[in-house]
Amino acid sequence: MSTAAVQQGTKWWSGGKSPFNASYGKVMMWYFLMSDAFTFGAFLISYGTIRFSQNHWVDPNHVFNSFPFAGHANLPLAFVSLMTFILIASSVTMVLAVHEGHKMNKAGVEKYMLWTILGGICFLGCQAWEWTHLLTGQHEVLVNGQLEYWNTTVAHNPFGPEVMFNGKEVATPGPIAFGSYFFEITGFHGFHVFSGIIINIVMFIKTKMNHFGQRGHYEMIEKAGLYWHFVDLVWVFVFLCFYLI
């Protein structure tokens, strides 16, 4: 192939060929992902606007400091790093599936698609645990001079600034926008992961039925891969905005 690659001086716009040197489906997948990037970007930027408009925001290391089966141990960043590595690993297996597809290796594509699907399911499981933990975990809050126990929901934020009460430091209610944005954005991302898993399962079945082998190319795996990597890409930014800064 290398001989045909990068013909210098190719007139891409003179007609007769795709100026993007890609099939219609792949170009449209790229445009869909670009528009989706703007959707996520708008969500994250509106979160940033509200956060900048507040005098106090939630310290992520204080909210996300637990780990399954670790009890009340204070482990900031531990669980979310596990989630991040799961998603990076599933991105790698996806790109390996695309690689096997280039080599027309059906068994290889099947193997790596299964690993990718497994990674996606693990990620969703982690997210379900984290949501459950936030929605059911009770925290002491000082509300109108009285101590109450609040969960973190779209309407309650028990992680406000701390004040002295009866000789000990107690949190007061924080901006409710925290819960709304957290559940909205991670939920929207989780929904993307979910639809990515469905797409990958469909691709796995089609590989198993040798549809791509008959077609003579595995470009559909590439398109599904583009979507899956995009989900990983968005997580990189969600991870930045909610957990690191």
Binding site: M1, S2, A4, Q7, K17, Y24, H99, H102, K103, H217
Partner: peptide, 25 residues
């Protein structure tokens, strides 16, 4: 490289390396 022409819109296939080294890197 057995990558056959998947679509008449594609003039040439970008070179796909045979190793998975860049992926792991």
């Amino acid at each position: 490289m057995s990558a056959s022409i998947s679509s008449p819109e594609i003039t040439f296939h970008p070179e796909h390396e045979d190793t998975t080294k860049p992926i792991w890197r």
